[in-house]
Amino acid sequence: MSAVAHASAYGAPGMASHLGPPPKRIVTGYGFWIFLLSDFVMFSAFFAAYAVLAKATDGGPGGRELFDLRSVAAETAALLASSFTCGLGSIAASRKQAMAFYIAMLVTGALGAIFLGLEIKEFVGLVAQGAGPTRSAFLSGFFTLVGCHGLHVSLGLLWLLTMIAQVMAKGFRADILRRILCFSLFWHALDIIWVGIFTVVYLYGVYL
């Protein structure tokens, strides 16, 4: 088993350079990093659309009337704390400590669910007061940008549960550890996007 894992982790010798190809963990992490950067590029288009349309309220409500900064602060705290516990979980995974990994990941998932719950509550409240995505270009841009981030968090939660199940079923195998590395990158990247959202959408929306 260990000989097989070693061979698959380092590939055939002498393929890329005199050093051999990089370990699979580095290739996988780098590839996923490229995907995350392309995700950032996609979000930048939504940010640009929102920023251009932020004042196009068509006589309807703007950010100052609609946004509740206390709820946004709670969402921010939940997502930041979940990023931290996700980091603790990846430390536990790299040290192959199953119980610490499960606890950290379940806390991460719970905090992510709190974030999603607050966001869904906000969206439902906006639609209920007639400020749905069809009300104005500003609200179309808002729901697209923030909703796309919420969709990413939802997919991240599904991925998180999958990783817990895979560790339960298969243990800390090299391929499972690579998936955990990619998952933690994804989760931390979502928090970076959220920093842009709470600044550009909510703080600028309320105070500008």
Partner: peptide, 10 residues
């Protein structure tokens, strides 16, 4: 020589 982003080096 190389590190994956997010790597722990635990």
């Amino acid at each position: 020589l190389e590190t994956a982003p997010g790597d722990e080096h635990a």
